[in-house]
Computed example of a mutant assay.
Amino acid sequence: MVFAQSDTTKVDSLAKKSYIPTGIRFGVDALSIARTFYSKTFDGWEVNADVDFDRYYLAVDYGYWARTYTGDKALYDNNGRYFRVGADVNFLTKDPEKNMFFFGLRYGRATFSEHLKIENVQDPTWGSLDTQLSNNNINGSWFELVTGLKVKMWKFIWMGYTARFKFGLSTNETGIMMPSDVPGYGSTDKQSTWGFNYQLFFRIPTPVKK
């Protein structure tokens, strides 16, 4: 009889779980906007969205990224767009406000172009040389392990941060120039890198059938 009651309790607990979404959050990365204003080498923005399925969340990011670096005799620039898609698991399962402490996984992909111009390089044989290299409309892809917090501040307004460990970068360039900076990922001189976002969200509740 004890085992029968225990089994009934487990069934009732599973029946109470609902995987019907209760809200969609739309947000923007405040750090990307701030960097655009104070950095002389970066221009960009990023928007974010997620939707809940009980403790699991489908998350999507989309952004624009441009870099410009200048040296004594060189100019490098790139620009492109990127997206990330993946899932998060919320570990604050009993919070009625649906605040989040989460871990997740992302797949990221970028499409971009980049150019390198070198002027007035002195060669002992050929004299002064000017060189231009470029990669046009190439793709890059990578993976991310993410963690962070999302907290309700007031009514439909949420704030949060996401820390990203990026790895597994691959690109499809065919020219003699190796990609230097991939939008959404960053510098390619390391096999892995870190990223951080500080986000502001607006949550729209969805009708839930009882």
Rank of each mutant, 00 (worst) to 15 (best):
Y64H: 13
A66C: 02
A66H: 08
T68V: 08
Y69G: 05
Y69K: 05
G71T: 07
L75E: 11
Y76S: 09
N78T: 15
R84C: 04
R84I: 02
V85R: 06
V85N: 05
G86N: 05
N90P: 02
K94C: 04
D95I: 08
P96W: 01
E97Q: 13
M100N: 10
F101S: 11
F102A: 04
F102N: 03
F103C: 13
L105F: 12
L105Q: 13
Y107N: 06
G108N: 09
G108Q: 09
A110P: 02
T111V: 11
S113R: 00
S113Q: 01
H115C: 00
L116F: 07
K117M: 08
N120H: 14
N120K: 13
N120E: 14
N120G: 11
V121E: 11
V121T: 13
Q122V: 15
P124C: 08
G127M: 09
S128A: 12
D130N: 12
D130P: 01
D130F: 00
Q132H: 11
Q132K: 13
L133T: 05
L133F: 10
S134G: 02
I138L: 00
I138R: 00
I138A: 01
G140W: 00
S141A: 10
W142P: 02
W142Y: 12
E144A: 11
V146M: 00
V146I: 10
T147P: 01
L149C: 09
K152F: 06
K152C: 07
K152W: 05
K152G: 12
M153A: 15
K155N: 14
F156N: 14
F156I: 08
I157C: 02
W158M: 03
M159F: 02
G160C: 08
R164H: 14
F165E: 10
K166D: 05
F167L: 10
S170Y: 03
S170A: 12
S170T: 15
T171L: 01
T171G: 03
N172E: 11
N172S: 07
T174D: 07
T174W: 00
G175A: 06
G175H: 04
I176V: 15
I176A: 15
M177R: 11
P179R: 03
P179K: 03
S180V: 02
P183Y: 06
P183R: 04
P183N: 08
P183H: 05
Y185S: 13
S187N: 13
T188E: 08
T193E: 06
